[in-house]
């Protein structure tokens, strides 16, 4: 894929194609003199600048949407952990956890990954659909809300009970990745096919 097309795809995640095309053209005009590193650095910086602008100009709406998404995550997560996961474990390991087969171990990894990936992906799609033109900002807001919520829960839990949950956990990159993927998919669906230059 030509670098200008790739750059345009990155920029259209946070702006309309009509905005992105002249910006890529401007950067292309300077790229022969300044080099590829300058070109890509400024594509990313422009995308981040527009993403930040989406956050600052739509903060109340994005916060409200992220909190609604967080409520969904909590409800689905509770159902999954309270009913779905015990049922799946009982089905996969009817005789307990000892000496499971390789197949069952792989199945268990998939079951655990489903929670880390499918829930944020599904809720990410739901949030992105409600934030037309600001899909990425909405899904990043959801991720921030989810981890702010988790941090609050962990701090309260650790304060109230003599059992210390880790403040940071490995689920964050999974949640972030799944939510960003959902935003990209929804953004691509909302955009018309980019014309070839």
């Amino acid at each position: 894929m030509h670098k200008s097309v790739m750059a345009e795809r990155i920029l259209t995640l946070v702006m309309t194609p009509e905005r992105a095309s002249p910006i890529v053209g401007d950067l292309m005009e300077d790229a022969p003199v300044r080099g590829d590193l300058w070109f890509w650095a400024n594509v990313v910086r422009a995308a981040l600048a527009f993403l930040w602008r989406q956050f600052t100009t739509n903060a109340p709406n994005l916060t409200a949407l992220a909190l609604r998404g967080l409520a969904f995550v909590v409800v689905i997560d509770s159902i999954y952990n309270g009913i779905g996961l015990p049922w799946l474990v009982k089905t996969l390991f009817p005789n307990g956890y000892y000496y499971p087969s390789a197949f069952k171990l792989v199945a268990m990894v998939f079951v655990l990954m489903a929670e880390k990936l499918l829930i944020p992906f599904g809720v990410g799609l739901w949030v992105a659909r409600r934030a037309s033109g600001r899909e990425l900002a909405a899904c990043l807001s959801l991720t921030l809300a989810a981890y702010a919520g988790r941090l609050g829960f962990v701090l309260v839990w650790n304060y109230c009970f003599n059992f210390h949950l880790p403040v940071l956990e490995l689920g964050f990159p999974y949640f972030l990745g799944a939510a960003v993927l959902a935003a990209i998919i929804m953004r691509r669906r909302a955009l018309p096919e980019l014309p070839s230059p």
């Binding site: 702006m15 905005r19 910006i23 950067l27 400024n42 422009a46 981040l48 600048a49 527009f50 602008r53």
Partner: peptide, 12 residues
Amino acid sequence: PTPGALYTTLDR
């Protein structure tokens, strides 16, 4: 100015 700063300013 960085292109990002300029384009967001123009947009605003």
